[in-house]
Design a protein around this nucleic acid. Structure first.
Lengths: 199, 199
DNA sequence: GTCTATAAATTGATAGAC
DNA sequence: GTCTATCAATTTATAGAC
């Protein structure tokens, strides 16, 4: 079965914004946002360059839509019941495991988010939202230390950066498969929290 | 004291390749390689665009020089005596700690190496060398598990990716300060190997 | 080692037809 | 929703003077 990029534009289902975005995000992740031209996108879509502008006003708007989706999904995790009630140690593990799941389910969008550099206003906003996520997790780590559940001889901000450094590094190699998110989350939690737990 | 970029080109010390490379790598890390034009580099250097071509034949050559330097420094670690003799568990910790030190000492070059996407031959070669580094560390992890020093219910390749995912994530936030590399390495080893050690 | 001037190609984006 | 044609700006790189 031929894909959208090679099918006759007259017979295949026309693109909508979501489909254009999916292809664009994939290209951005392959070649980098700055390394991907509108011509590259047009090739990948099997469209002319100008047709892309029917769906989106600019290249940067594509980036904005993608990172907003990733940020929305990640911040939703922090509002889940298991992330706001119970001992901090358990809430931290929940946030870690759910972050791996989000990464599994929204891999291209999260990947793009984590590679943003700050060249445009869109990118700088994304970086600020990531810092806010980080602050909220740091509070969780600090609380778990105060509870005596995590060793408290390490700086909570440092521990948070190491923890989510490990999680975020998954985008460099992880590819979703049946059950693989669970395997990775188990190993990640065992390795990291296993070294931090006091019990 | 004015910096090289703003000083009169006639009175300041002329650039040599190493000085041009330092500035270029810094710019590449700030804006991304593809996001940095030769005009951006010229501005940062306080030179005309064409002057850069006296030092280097192309933009890609600058990238190649930078990633080669990072790769050379990293691979040297694998050949150090403490990385080739003794129990695998100790050799693994040595490679982890020395990798953090290399990152501390060669931060801009390692950062650039870790952000390479594979758009050019230069970049694809760098990616292949990184995979080779990964393979050698995986052997170390496997051996330490076989020795009974690390828990062996986790896949050695997965553990290696998580370990160096944590190390590599440092480039996203780490900035060298007096003694900071040691602090970070201690926390990283405590958190990761602490969760993997059998004793 | 650095400059000005410029070439040749590519880029993000628009106009207007179907 | 997609196309062809086109533009203005930018990009990498070169020629040749000082």
């Amino acid at each position: 079965m031929p894909d959208s990029a090679t099918m006759d534009p007259a017979t295949r289902r026309p693109y909508d914004l979501a489909a254009v975005l999916d292809v664009a995000v994939q290209e951005f992740n392959t070649r980098g946002y700055d390394g991907t031209s509108m011509g590259d996108l047009a090739n990948a879509l099997g469209l002319s360059k100008s047709s892309i502008y029917h769906h989106v006003p600019s290249k940067e708007a594509l980036l904005g839509l993608a990172v907003d989706r990733a940020l929305l999904t990640l911040f939703d995790v922090l509002d889940e019941p298991a992330a706001v009630q119970g001992p901090a140690r358990a809430r931290l593990e929940h946030v870690l495991r759910r972050s791996v799941e989000v990464l599994d389910q929204e891999l291209p969008f999260v990947t793009l988010l984590l590679r943003v550099r700050g060249n445009t206003q869109t990118e700088r906003h994304a970086l600020e939202r990531r810092r806010e996520f980080d602050r909220q997790v740091t509070d969780l780590v600090r609380e778990a230390m105060a509870d005596g559940d995590l060793r408290d001889d390490l700086d909570p901000a440092l521990v948070t950066r190491l923890l989510f450094g490990t999680v975020n590094s998954l985008v460099e190699w992880y590819r979703p498969e049946e059950g693989s998110a669970r395997t990775v989350a188990d190993a990640l939690v065992a390795m990291t929290l296993g070294g931090l737990d006091t019990t």
